[in-house]
Amino acid sequence: MHRFANPARFLRIAKPLTPALFWLGLLLTLIACIWGLFFTPTERLMGDTVKILFVHVPSAWLGMGGWTGIAIASIVQLVWRHPLAGVAARAIAVPGATFAAICLITGSIWGRPTWGTWWVWDGRLTSMLVLFFLYLGYIALSNASSEKGDTSRVAAVFGVIGAVNIPIINRSVVWWESQHQKASITLGGSSIDTAYLVPLFIAVVGFSLLFGALVLMRMRTALAEMRIEARMRRMAQG
């Protein structure tokens, strides 16, 4: 792992990888959205609103996956002092928060025609809202000081502790009587018809690749800003 701790080596990999992830992700996302919007059948109970699935589910996946990434990077930062792990965790925060927000908004829009309400305080929706607020807290903590040393360690601890919400979101529809439907895709299989499952899978892959490109862009920004700061400090000293 420490082989990739060198920012120069990381940049050699990240520079060609960023456009590759971006363009492939964009292509798959567009294919999935067009397929989902125009070439999937109307669902028996939900009608055409089922098409919201193709943006809601990938966003939920990335909102939760983003925090899982922050937690893993934070552990690596705290335990192994990997210099890029803190940069990666901070780079994930804004995209993760954005996808959590997209998930909440599209879920609310979907709720109105299917449940008859924009919002209910049930386990799934509330724990997802908590995740969004955790992201805001993490972003505020990591931006709190330009001197990143101690503050980023506090943010890393917050990132690890906040991960307790991820299994709560996942199990919320099982633990509490919920307006939200039970999990349709589990490790044991899927109850979704293949007419929806295939474009949904493409959407999840496409969104994930775009998320990867965004994280790389933000990591490259952070590394460039660190280089500028270090050079300015050297120039001021000498």
Partner: peptide
């Protein structure tokens, strides 16, 4: 209740947020 406005709104919100982020 017509479903089209809800579908359009969902995709539009996603598109605007993702475009801003990218």
């Amino acid at each position: 209740m017509p479903h089209a406005p809800f579908i359009i709104a969902s995709f539009a919100v996603t598109g605007v947020f993702m475009t801003w982020l990218i």
